[in-house]
Amino acid sequence: MTVELPLILVVALVGYFGIKLRRPPTWLIVVLLLGGFLLADTFLAPAIESGTKTGVDVIDKTGK
């Protein structure tokens, strides 16, 4: 049996349980969300995307 979940649902669940279990301060959550949103539309976006892809390749060991 295969279960398909949209990525946003998985991210929402991880975020929900992360907040419930780790209890970070509300201001930190707001700063990280707002900062990420604002950085996505700057000249830094390609560098962030490249760094993210490189990190995933290192973890998955597919970047040979």
Rank of each mutant, 00 (worst) to 15 (best):
V31I: 15
G51L: 04
K53L: 13
T42R: 06
M1Q: 10
E4W: 03
L13T: 13
G51F: 03
A40S: 15
A12T: 14
G55F: 08
L13N: 04
L7N: 10
L39N: 06
D41A: 14
R22Y: 09
I59A: 15
V14E: 02
L7Q: 09
A40Q: 05
T52Q: 11
K64G: 12
F37M: 14
T54W: 13
T42L: 08
L9G: 11
Y16P: 00
T2D: 04
V56S: 01
K20S: 07
A40W: 03
V58N: 09
L32W: 04
V58C: 06
T2Q: 06
P24I: 02
I29Y: 05
P25E: 07
V30C: 03
I8M: 10
G15M: 05
L28Q: 12
R23A: 11
V30R: 06
G63T: 01
L38A: 15
W27M: 09
A12M: 09
I48N: 05
L33W: 08
M1S: 14
R22V: 13
L9W: 04
D41Y: 12
D57N: 13
P46R: 14
K53G: 03
L38N: 04
I59N: 01
I8F: 11
V14W: 03
D57R: 11
L44G: 01
G15H: 05
G18A: 05
P25L: 03
V3K: 11
F17S: 08
